[in-house]
């Protein structure tokens, strides 16, 4: 914000915006060009990056914009994944139907849980989100006939699309993921700059003032929870296609924590921060796992280092550095 005070701050701001636009376009171009190299492994990793970026972005909507932490966000991701998997195994192969049902199922669960979540704050908020997610996890883990218990649901097939290109191959499927990724990030950009998104930020910063100004604070937070749940469910369906398998671990607290660290590492409350965080964590996982078996140790160290040295995320670090320079 300091930069705006200086004469010429407007120019600098404009320069930053155009730099961000350039970087985003460059990243999209690289992602779009990846299938030319044609390596199935690289495509798989890139698709996983985008799926987790959407998962992290959905958490960011409640955590970063509305200011509500969660230790159970993976419940929506997992319910979306299971929904797509069950539909696929039942022979419903349309991608729009699978995606829509996954999003709806997760959003409906969020609509059910939100009244309980909205009452809590602080440590109790973390606990209630964890508890609700664990209940669903316990069902997924126990109900062998429906969810396959700890064996999960193998044999999930990639959906059929009405898109003009064939998505049964690796490259075609990858472009479907890329398209959904680009659309949903663009939707996040629009949503967070809309009056609704700005009101959420206002609620995060000072809930009582927003209530005094006449905003229906509770309803806004409720809608944010449902939207975030639905978006996580859509990402979950994409994970089910990508992996061809769904198991109870995608509902687990480990996945919820992974989404948290992606958001925090990148920068909560920014649209691109969680995307950067998710890309970095997934890339790091693949690089480190190729070098050593100690990935969990490195991941743990990432949590510790991010909390200590980058509490506002990489986007926050970059902003501070840019302000310092100007």
């Amino acid at each position: 914000m300091m930069a705006d005070v200086h004469a010429g701050g407007g120019f600098r701001r404009q320069a930053v915006v155009s730099a961000v636009v350039l970087v985003v376009l460059a990243v999209l171009a690289v992602l779009a060009a990846l299938p030319i190299a044609g390596d199935a492994y690289v495509l798989g990793v890139a698709a996983r990056m985008m799926v987790f970026a959407l998962f992290a972005s959905s958490l960011n909507l409640v955590l970063g914009f509305a200011g509500m932490a969660s230790l159970g966000h993976a419940v929506y991701f997992g319910v979306g994944a299971y929904t797509a998997a069950k539909l696929s195994l039942a022979g419903v192969s349309g991608f729009g139907l699978q995606l829509g049902m996954a999003g709806l199922a997760a959003a409906a669960l969020a609509a059910l849980f939100a009244p309980l979540i909205l009452r809590a704050s602080g440590a109790y908020l973390l606990m209630i989100t964890l508890a609700l997610a664990q209940v669903v996890w316990g069902i997924a883990y126990g109900w062998r006939e429906f969810t396959g218990a700890d064996d999960g649901l193998p044999g999930v097939r990639r959906p059929d699309s009405m898109l003009p290109w064939d998505i049964s191959g690796d490259a075609g499927f990858y472009y479907l993921i890329l398209l959904l990724f680009a659309l949903l990030v663009a939707a996040m950009l629009v949503l967070t700059r809309s009056p609704f998104g700005l009101a959420l930020v206002g609620i995060r910063e000072n809930e009582r003032r927003m209530a005094a100004l006449g905003y229906p604070v509770g309803r806004y937070k409720y809608i944010a929870c449902v939207l975030a749940g639905g978006m996580a469910g859509v990402a979950g369906a994409m994970l089910a296609w990508q992996n061809g398998f769904v198991g109870p671990s995608c509902l687990s607290v480990a996945y919820s924590a992974t989404a948290l660290i992606m958001v925090i590492l990148g920068g909560a409350g920014t649209v691109f921060g969680p995307v950067i965080g998710a890309f970095l964590i997934v890339a790091l996982e693949n690089v480190i796992s190729g070098l050593t078996e100690r990935w969990m140790f490195v991941l743990g160290a990432t949590y510790v280092l991010a909390t200590l040295f980058a509490p506002e995320g990489l986007v926050g670090l970059w902003r501070r550095w840019a302000e310092h320079r100007s």
Partner: peptide, 13 residues
């Protein structure tokens, strides 16, 4: 919570 979760992952590994 994030710090102590990270420590749990490190000690477990």
């Amino acid at each position: 919570a994030l710090l102590t979760f990270g420590i749990m992952l490190m000690l477990g590994d």
